[in-house]
Write a protein that binds this DNA or RNA. Structure first.
Length: 226
DNA sequence: GTCCAGGGTTCGT
DNA sequence: ACGAACCATGGA
């Protein structure tokens, strides 16, 4: 699997195209500002988007949805507003680290000047921003090309027989590295692909009871590709 | 009551 | 380096 041949590469590209075409999405990551994308990326960690959205609206109502205002708020205050998103004490600290990190970087305008790699490295330094959250912020907040090799993506690639990332903390990085070298995506396609992968995963494998047959037997879209 | 959701950190081995 | 516990709410 380390060296995918031209045929495998073509199959991967076709599979991605099929997913995008089959799951068209509109406004997959609704947000009114770049900062709101970043806040949402933290709040949605291990949480349904509906609950993260409720927390975002509470922050908006409290006029805390700007870096300067949030950076001056207390963790306790933030925790109170974001309660619907769960893990509020943890996420309050992460939001605070995010807002302070932005301020200390010279603001969003300065951050947006950084190259892709430098920006990603900067985001990863901040408490509460891991690889997946950083890539989501890059892709939807800063419009930089990125493949989100999250759980849905890794399961899809595994069941398609394209790449087996395995388990553990490094699975994300292994999958990301593989995709980066095998596939070149522009921002629009990368955004659409991630949304499609998640929708596909939720529809066929995320809900209980799990469908044992469909993805394993048909790969859902694989039969139209193979 | 139980399981899980668009993760990351921390703490045992 | 790897696995597991932990966070904490709302929905099915």
């Amino acid at each position: 699997m380390a060296a995918a041949g031209p045929a495998e590469l073509e199959r991967l590209a076709a599979a991605c195209r099929a997913l995008i075409d089959h799951y068209p999405t509109r406004n997959w990551w609704p947000a009114r500002s770049r900062f709101e994308v970043m806040v949402g990326a933290v709040l949605v960690q291990n949480t349904r988007w509906l609950n993260a959205a409720r927390a975002i609206e509470a922050l908006r109502a409290a006029a805390l949805l700007q870096p300067a205002a949030m950076a001056e708020a207390s963790a306790e205050t933030l925790a109170r507003w974001i309660r619907p998103a769960g893990c509020q004490r943890i996420k309050a600290r992460r939001l605070l680290a995010l807002a302070i990190g932005i301020q200390q970087s010279g603001g969003l305008r300065a951050l947006a000047q950084l190259e892709d790699q430098a920006l990603r490295a900067r985001l990863l330094r901040w408490h509460g921003i891991g690889e997946e959250t950083a890539d989501a912020i890059l892709l939807y907040g800063f419009k930089r090309p990125a493949f989100l090799s999250d759980g849905y993506a890794r399961r899809w690639l595994s069941r398609m027989g394209i790449f087996e990332a395995g388990a553990g903390p490094r699975a994300y990085g292994r999958c990301r590295q593989f995709m980066a070298q095998e596939l070149v995506l522009d921002v629009s396609d990368a955004q659409a692909l991630h949304a499609a992968v998640v929708l596909h995963g939720q529809q066929h494998c995320g809900a209980r009871p799990r469908c044992e047959g469909c993805c394993v037997a048909n790969y859902c879209l694989n039969k139209t590709i193979a």
